[in-house]
């Protein structure tokens, strides 16, 4: 027998269940308990960057919206810099932008929204620009292990065409499942997305 490696094993995932709001967004469960609450609003009045709303639904295999889903997003700031010590790229940090938020879907419509800013292009270790994107993590009743996907932006066609991750997606027709569509409503920029868990337009999910 060779020597044992003695790595520990990762703790197994379990579903977040239908009552995930109690722990993560108690106001949605119907009560007020913490002084400080995390939310789907990532910006303060001082945050740098173009204000955008991300708005979408997660659909199940029957095409019905999940009404008990929770999404978290993690993104770079307007300069393309993540607010984390492991990002050593040149862009300036923004003290008014953590870059993370969580939102639950509306219990009737299934709509999830985030108030944030459009992230800048990200520079990878090799010095290449990666298209602006938002990292998304999805949990809900019936989802046994959190699903990772990304949202890119429809008005970044050239950057998207050169993005090293989008270019890994085959067949190419599936790349569109990762692109949020830019629109405007009441003078505000709204990017709309649909995440399909199954079906012919199933969203690309990543094993990161």
């Amino acid at each position: 027998m060779p020597q044992p490696l003695n790595y520990l094993k990762e703790t197994a995932s379990q579903t977040a269940g239908p009552y995930v709001h109690i722990g993560l967004i108690p106001a949605m469960a119907g009560f007020d308990i913490f002084e400080n609450n995390f939310s789907n609003v990532l910006v303060t009045p001082n945050t740098q960057g173009e204000r955008i709303t991300l708005e979408g639904k997660v659909l199940d295999g029957s095409g019905s919206p999940l009404r008990d889903v929770l999404l978290e997003i993690w993104q770079a700031n307007a300069a393309g810099r993540y607010n984390h010590p492991a990002d050593r790229s040149a862009g300036a940090l923004d003290a008014d932008f953590r870059g993370w938020g969580r939102g639950g879907s509306d219990f009737e419509s299934g709509l999830v929204t985030f108030e944030t800013i459009k992230p800048g292009a990200i520079t990878d270790k090799a010095g290449r620009k990666c298209a602006p994107h938002v990292n998304v993590w999805i949990v809900a009743r019936g989802i046994n292990i959190g699903l990772n996907t990304r949202l890119y932006f429809s008005d970044e066609e050239a950057a998207n065409a050169a993005d090293p991750v989008l270019n890994l997606v085959e067949p190419q027709v599936r790349r569109k499942t990762l692109i949020a569509t830019r629109g405007e409503r009441a003078g505000k920029v709204v990017y709309s997305f649909t995440i399909n868990l199954q079906g012919p337009d199933e969203t690309v999910f990543f094993d990161v």
Binding site: G61, W74, H84, I122, K125, C130, I143, N144
Partner: peptide, 27 residues
């Protein structure tokens, strides 16, 4: 676990090497 039937992706996950987007996270 019946709720997983309609809520489980059927395509393979796309494996990607970790980039700065994955090795960073909220502090």
């Amino acid at each position: 676990y019946k709720s997983s039937v309609l809520r489980s992706p059927r395509q393979s996950l796309l494996s990607i090497e970790n980039s700065v987007s994955e090795i960073t996270g909220p502090v």
